[in-house]
Design a binder for these strands. Sequence first.
DNA 1: CCAAATTTGATGTACGTAAATCAAAATTTG
DNA 2: CAAATTTTGATTTACGTACATCAAATTTGG
Lengths: 341, 341
Amino acid sequence: MRPTVHDIAAAAGVSLATVDRVLNQRPGVRKVTREKVENAIREIGYIRDVAAANLAKGRTYSFVFILPASDNSFMHGLNDEVRAAVARSSVERTNIRTIEVPAFDPGALVQILNELGDERPSGIALVATDAPEVRDAVDRLVQDGIPVVTLVSDLTGSQRHHYAGVDNIAAGRTAARLLGRFLGGATGEIAVLAGSMLVRDHRERLEGFAAVMAAEFPSLSILPVIEGRDDPEMAHMLVADALSKKSGIIGVYSLGAGNRGLIRALKEKAVDRSLTVIAHELTTHTRAALLDGTIDAILNQDAGHEVRSAIRVLKAKADGLAVIEAQERIRLDIFLKDNLP
Amino acid sequence: MRPTVHDIAAAAGVSLATVDRVLNQRPGVRKVTREKVENAIREIGYIRDVAAANLAKGRTYSFVFILPASDNSFMHGLNDEVRAAVARSSVERTNIRTIEVPAFDPGALVQILNELGDERPSGIALVATDAPEVRDAVDRLVQDGIPVVTLVSDLTGSQRHHYAGVDNIAAGRTAARLLGRFLGGATGEIAVLAGSMLVRDHRERLEGFAAVMAAEFPSLSILPVIEGRDDPEMAHMLVADALSKKSGIIGVYSLGAGNRGLIRALKEKAVDRSLTVIAHELTTHTRAALLDGTIDAILNQDAGHEVRSAIRVLKAKADGLAVIEAQERIRLDIFLKDNLP
DNA sequence: CCAAATTTGATGTACGTAAATCAAAATTTG
DNA sequence: CAAATTTTGATTTACGTACATCAAATTTGG
């Protein structure tokens, strides 16, 4: 049988009230007594029954998700997953609120974070814009004892408790090796389409991609990065233009969102050419393109897993519990035609 | 605020005791009254507070994991993950016991399952040997109201509540496409190493592999399957033999466990040849081989995820709750050198 | 050494559900 | 219609923890 507070009291030779004072860090306990109790807790291996505790407290976790107001399939999917979590939230004693902020706007993000500092929710998850002022705002919250996790894109050098997202350097490296192997030693140029070099995840993907390309596939050369701002129209124009002008392009790596434009450009311009294409994020568009052969592989992060992981971690941190690290590692999915979910 | 049993009682105009009788399917309630209560439950959207209920019941879930006594890295890993779950079990009000059965022995499995029918644990997870008598034994347990999930390998045509494992046909297809693309249109023979064609997961992998090979890579021909019984020594001998005799082999697909022998054979026999190799299951051995270039890609199922998923599903079934399907889908991991965990 | 302040103990209520008991009411049976 | 039976209500205890109150004991300061 699992030990209870009564067992602690008996083991430490104190009353239940004193045990309670120690456990919940209430004042009015001498140092010697406190240590006696703490030793007893350790010795009998007491673990607080979180379910009973939450029942007693009538606790509901209040979590806030801060998402960028970007109009691309991935962010819509992320939003959907948060909504799905909200739908489940009553069962899980959680109260989840989402706040939309303009994308790539550190100022707006900082303002929201500061307001949340007063509100003191049980936990915060945010898609971080990687800027020093954001990092400082997050660190203030952490110092205040509010659990914070970054979602999808991390925050350089911050004290956030956890990052719920994929390793983007590894993602870029993987893309490079897949492309290199699929091209089987051919010589030519690779076009890279990104959203913006101002977000950390895109920078990291490119970094990993370029590193492996340079080291292991010297016959392939990377063209200057095309920045499509995750906008389908812009991506379409820029990619179509590049394909027209550069006849040496034999492969494409799309590391950002907004692949609709890319796919359209590929279908228009590359009917006669055989391009090998790797893209990020599984959406209706990329899925169809993978199935019809326009895209050869899709690298994906599962937004649902990221959201659920973020919630689990926030809950654990709020309760002062440990997380199962292996469970919370967000994996890079590689999809070919054959293993689509 | 979430509605409670009191709210049901008020809404239905009955007493708390009657609500309790309906909720816990105790006798002594007229049909009309039962329906009145059930309507009230539906109308006010009552959801049982599982935490409070378990507290009141003093419930601990007793789960049984039935694992084959196979001496290969994957099964050892699976065992480790179950043990890790046992270590966490006190916190989660679970009591997990593992039973080892001889591998590929339907009779032994059936006997254990029948014994468990009397013991009535809260749930059972088993690595199924795919035989009709096992299916029948499982179906009896399911009929008895005991939640059952299959782990890693499924049971054809059975009523099991859930399968916690990967789609092995998709895995085989994916292996074929990777191999085909990596070989880039070359002509030659492919050696396939399996454990045994008597287990369903291996049969399915081969099926998927052969299908895609035939349809999309006609220049590659599959040699007769080598059955290594998941035994390193045997695999070593058979693969070394094949490599010596067949000079046309340009690729290898190892779809079973026990890759140690395969790797040794590859290092001895294929120093001068360039083979493209795809193997299943990430272990210390396959990981090292991937890093040093002996293996080109590893397909993996995450044993930790499978075990945790099985537990979550068993718990949900025991409580009569819904599972989050997307969360319980076990994904096929594809590892290249660059995205190893 | 006494008064004041601090520390500790004893006790009760609450959270939402399960489970049991006994009495009261309603229904069915003969 | 009375007796037997079934159904329903009222009430209590328990699970493990949190939190509050008041009294008693101990320690500290002057």
